[in-house]
């Protein structure tokens, strides 16, 4: 009788381990969505352009969602990412005629890092809640975009569009968008940093229980500052990738992306209370949202329904993740 029990254990242990993962629900949800859409609408779903469309928008939203995940894991939130995405992209375009592509890209990313640092200062030194500080930043940087551009984003010159560095972010490789490849690379790197580095340990410890983390010698301020800067940098990079791909833009660039990025992270199993979540979950949360919107439009549902769907998916995702976390004792 023992042998079968051991056999069952071999099967159940990985299943139990899987169920304990914060991203278990979104892994199943994404597989389900891909299977259902493939069965319901195979003609459109398996088209090359559908996949390109999903991966392209997922790359843009996903970079933001990874950054958001890092901040949420530290038990903070960054509502400014939509405006940071916009202002960094516009700064890249605006400074290019003077600085050239490499330096303007560097300057734009430095701007992103500076915004992240300022957010961290406001929250960690100023004692303002991250929700309020970054909400203020969201409005402030959007306002700066409107004031400085006068309603129109400058054109990105043909020379700049053809520059190798622009192409490195906006071009294609083996018919796949470079933006998507960057997204995948950054997702892998972020996963490695979160789960196999000292900083990752500190981040999860700070998000799990700040007092205990502090007692164990973790420098909370430094850890959270890095999280805010990384989040802004990824938002900025996402903006640059967008411009490199499609330079015809507008001052509305990035509007409401902050909420979509939070939704992707939460649906992906990241708990707003901090300390629990995975990069894989947020990546899948991004794919899930993007795929559902694409298919809803394809099936003829008005795109405005998508907004309602995100709300339902968010509530369902958060509930399922909480229930699964409780049941697995995580």
């Amino acid at each position: 009788m023992r042998a079968p029990a051991v056999g069952i254990q071999h099967v159940t242990r990985p299943l139990t381990r899987f169920r304990k993962r914060p991203d278990a629900a979104i892994v199943l949800g994404t597989i389900l969505v891909f299977l259902v859409f493939g069965a319901v609408d195979p003609e459109s779903w398996f088209q090359f352009f559908t996949m390109i469309n999903i991966t392209r928008y997922a790359a843009i939203l996903g970079l933001l969602a990874i950054g958001q995940t890092i901040v949420i894991l530290s038990r903070e939130i960054d509502l400014s990412v939509g405006s940071v995405y916009g202002i960094v992209a516009i700064a890249f375009i605006a400074s290019e005629p003077t600085l050239g592509v490499p330096l303007s890209l560097l300057a734009a990313l430095m701007l992103a890092a500076a915004i992240g640092l300022l957010n961290a200062l406001l929250v960690l030194r100023g004692g303002i809640s991250s929700m309020i500080a970054t909400l203020g930043a969201l409005f402030f940087y959007r306002g700066i975009i409107y004031v400085t551009t006068g309603g129109t984003v400058m054109r990105f010159s043909q020379g700049a569009r053809a520059h190798w560095l622009t192409q490195a972010f906006g071009g294609q490789w083996l018919r796949l968008d470079n933006a998507f490849l960057w997204f995948m690379l950054i997702a892998v790197l972020a996963s490695l940093v979160l789960y196999h580095s000292r900083f990752g340990n500190h981040l999860l410890a700070v998000g799990g229980d700040e007092t205990t983390a502090l007692a164990r010698g973790v420098t909370v301020v430094r850890t959270k500052t890095i999280a805010f800067v990384a989040c802004s940098l990824l938002a900025g990079l996402s903006g640059i990738v967008t411009i490199a791909q499609n330079p015809q833009t507008h001052v509305t660039l990035g509007m409401q992306l902050e909420l979509e990025s939070i939704a992707a992270a939460v649906i992906g199993g990241t708990q707003l209370g901090g300390g629990r979540g995975t990069v894989l979950g947020s990546v899948l949360g991004t794919f899930f949202l993007t795929a559902v919107r694409s298919e809803m439009i394809t099936l003829g549902a008005p795109p405005s329904w998508y907004t309602a769907f995100v709300g339902i998916a968010l509530l369902l995702g958060a509930t399922i993740n909480t229930v699964m976390a409780r049941r697995s004792g995580a």
Binding site: Q47, T252, M255, L257, R293, E295
Partner: peptide
């Protein structure tokens, strides 16, 4: 109004 999202929506629609 967001350019990337608008392109994605139009692309989904036109693909079908």
């Amino acid at each position: 109004a967001d350019p990337a999202r608008a392109r994605s929506i139009m692309q989904s629609y036109l693909t079908k």
